[in-house]
């Protein structure tokens, strides 16, 4: 049975997780870059990152680069595992539909 993660399934959170998953482990993306890649607004992106962080899927680091504050979001180990399960679940749904005999 396909196992989908309700937290990851939301479209913007799926894009955030996909973007972070494309990076090597331990490497993060700056908030500004993530915003550009996902096409989200500041508020929306912040809220969804918060949800993912509460679930333990991402870590959020705030630091100053020069005088500018910089927020970096990194995929955590449990997040990477959950994302892999979610993708496997999606693939299972597609495979299940393809294996179904055509209706008469």
């Amino acid at each position: 049975m396909a196992e989908l993660d309700e937290i990851i399934h939301q479209p913007l959170r799926l894009r955030i997780m996909a973007a972070l998953n494309a990076l090597p482990a331990g490497t993060g993306l700056e908030f500004v870059r993530l915003k550009k890649l996902t096409g989200a607004t500041d508020g929306n992106l912040g809220a969804h990152i918060e949800t993912l962080a509460r679930a333990g899927y991402v870590t959020v680091d705030k630091a100053f680069v020069g005088k500018k504050p910089q927020t970096t979001v990194t995929l955590a180990g449990p997040g990477r595992a959950a994302f892999a399960r979610h993708v496997a679940g999606l693939q299972e749904i597609i495979a299940g539909a393809a294996a179904k005999p055509p209706e008469p």
Partner: peptide
């Protein structure tokens, strides 16, 4: 539960984001 069409769309989204991140790194 979602249908196969939605699942395919989600996988396309993931693939698109992966491509965009790699392009951005390059």
């Amino acid at each position: 539960m979602i249908d196969s069409l939605e699942a395919a769309r989600a996988l396309d989204d993931i693939e698109d984001m992966t491509r965009r991140v790699r392009q951005s790194q390059i």
